[in-house]
Design a protein around this nucleic acid. Structure first.
Lengths: 194, 194
DNA sequence: CCTCTATTTGAACGAATGATCAAATTTTAA
DNA sequence: TTAAAATTTGATCATTCGTTCAAATAGAGG
């Protein structure tokens, strides 16, 4: 029983995630995957079952990575709302070139995949919902810390931020105008603060 | 020279557009297209050259349709800003189920297609830019009509609206919550008006 | 060292893909 | 009515796709 597994497996999923994120589900062939993760078809199918199942694990990996990053930014900024703004700035502007795509992988999946692969759609939806819930939690903390108005509604604000995040990332892909986007982010958070 | 063309051709492009919009570029096979537009491969390739060129024409068709609709809404509303808000509400909420996809076809293209097919990316970008320019023109009119503040900047507001439109449509696909989205649209335009 | 089991390999499968083209059909013009 | 030109047809092409599986390889226990 050659159980080198776990460690290796996470690494493989991560590599698959990066390729899927770049090229999309339909745009990534199993041959592309074989090369990217350095595994032969038999091993891949033994380990993951199908292309779709591997994609599913890649989605979860992506989502976890983003969640971790958000946590780190809150620590760096030393405040809930400050961390959120830093997270926005990093994702939308700073990292958009080093990442495989400017656009959120969950959003890419949701827009690409149809009623074939309903499970991929449902999983993307679920993971996006979790992100929004996380935003709401953070905004609640910000409220308790006095960073935002006492009459603010964290759930509504979280929804608002989700829309901004999605829109800004795609807009970055269309316009490549970091300066104006940075101003937009400043405005968004300025409006939340008061 | 059987020149039944123009009329028929536009109809064919429109049907192709609806299918492409629904299933995406990679997700639409040439067989799907053959059935949808009721043409045989030889005719299709004689008329359009390739799948990519047909998609290009479909993108333009989509964009024109949206532009026409926006014009109509401004007429219906009897004001520039009112028409814009009506357009938002129709696109994001009312028509999202009757359309092939909740998401803007230009955005779908931009997020799906990679550096293969650079021309599709560039065309989508260009058409999105035209939309934003159109928004700016309309906001300028609104400004002159006294619908928005005299210190408002139409170009910045247009960019803002573009981000909102993109974000809201995708958010609709994830959450299916028309009520909250309607409130969000109300808020967006309320903030613009004062 | 050997045997048994688990894993990996890569050739191969059938289906689907985008595209072509000679033949059949339809349209045009005389 | 007829011949030339334009268009349509559908069988077919070479690739590529996701996936399978018998054979080869590697590790564990005795």
């Amino acid at each position: 029983m050659a159980n080198v597994a776990k460690y290796n497996r996470d690494d493989v999923i991560r590599k698959a995630m990066l390729l899927f994120w770049e090229k999309g589900y339909n745009g990534t062939s199993t041959r592309d995957l074989q090369q990217a993760i350095d595994m032969r078809p038999g091993s891949i199918y033994a380990a993951f079952g199908s292309k779709e199942q591997l994609y599913r694990e890649a989605l979860v990996c992506y989502s976890q990575g983003m969640a971790e990053m958000l946590g780190q930014r809150i620590v760096s900024a030393g405040s809930a709302l400050g961390g959120l703004e830093l997270f926005f700035r990093n994702v939308v502007i700073d990292q958009c070139d080093s990442n495989p795509s400017e656009v959120c992988m969950l959003v890419k999946t949701l827009t690409e995949v149809n009623d074939d692969h309903p499970e991929l759609m449902e999983l993307s939806r679920e993971l996006l919902k979790r992100t929004e819930d996380r935003f709401a939690d953070i905004l609640q903390q910000a409220k308790e810390a006095g960073e935002i108005a006492t009459h603010a509604n964290p759930r509504i604000l979280a929804r608002h931020l989700q829309v901004q995040m999605i829109g800004l990332r795609i807009y970055m892909k269309t316009s490549r105008n970091p300066e104006s986007l940075s101003e937009q982010i400043t405005t968004i958070f300025a409006n939340i603060k008061r």
